[in-house]
């Protein structure tokens, strides 16, 4: 099983052929291309995964994350990472892959209504489709919180490392 770690969170991708740690400074060198954290490759699709973990126990500045969210900069950054990654992957030879974009935001106090609003904003910001495009640039795009991630992919799929065993 492929497991990856992003600071305090561990994610499991039991069915993936390959999971790439895409946000790797060594790999990208001096390029300032914006990039998502991970790309999980499956037979029929590639999943881009971006993780935002303001609930990390060692968090220094949750207020800054909230401010970023309110100002719209968070959505700008999330859509920028998606576009740059998609560009990089196309040139790399994956232009035909069906892409899914999942953003994990660990902020428990964020209500469903607000997540839903941010997600709609993100889809417009990317954008997922255009009248002059032959196909959508991603099959889908969704923002999940920890509870929704586990509900959808199972309790074993996500673990907070500082809490020890699977919560």
């Amino acid at each position: 099983m492929t497991k990856v770690q992003e600071f305090d969170l561990e994610l499991a991708f039991p069915g993936a052929k390959n999971v790439i740690h895409f946000d790797d400074n060594v790999y990208h060198g001096s390029s300032t291309v914006q990039r998502v954290d991970f790309i999980a490759e499956y037979e029929d699709r590639h999943i881009f995964i971006e993780i935002k973990d303001p609930d990390i126990p060692s968090a220094q500045n949750v207020g800054a994350f909230e401010a970023k969210m309110k100002s719209g900069k968070l959505v700008q950054s999330l859509s920028g990472k998606f576009r740059d990654t998609l560009f990089f992957r196309s040139i790399q030879g994956h232009a035909d892959a069906s892409v899914l974009y999942i953003v994990l935001i660990s902020m428990e106090k964020l209500e469903n209504a607000l997540l839903l609003a941010k997600q709609d904003e993100l889809r417009r910001s990317i954008p997922l489709r255009h009248a002059d495009w032959k196909r959508d640039c991603a099959a889908s795009c969704i923002i999940l919180n920890v509870a929704q991630w586990k509900k959808k992919f199972g309790d074993q799929s996500l673990r907070r490392i500082s809490e020890g065993a699977v919560a």
Binding site: L11, L100, N112, L115, L116, S140, C141, Q148, K152
Partner: peptide, 22 residues
């Protein structure tokens, strides 16, 4: 009121991730 949004969100996830597993 809160439940209404949870339902909306659940339906949205269901549509966006239909058939997707990790």
């Amino acid at each position: 009121i809160a439940k209404t949004f949870s339902e909306l969100y659940d339906a949205e996830i269901e549509r966006s991730l239909d058939g997707v597993t990790l």
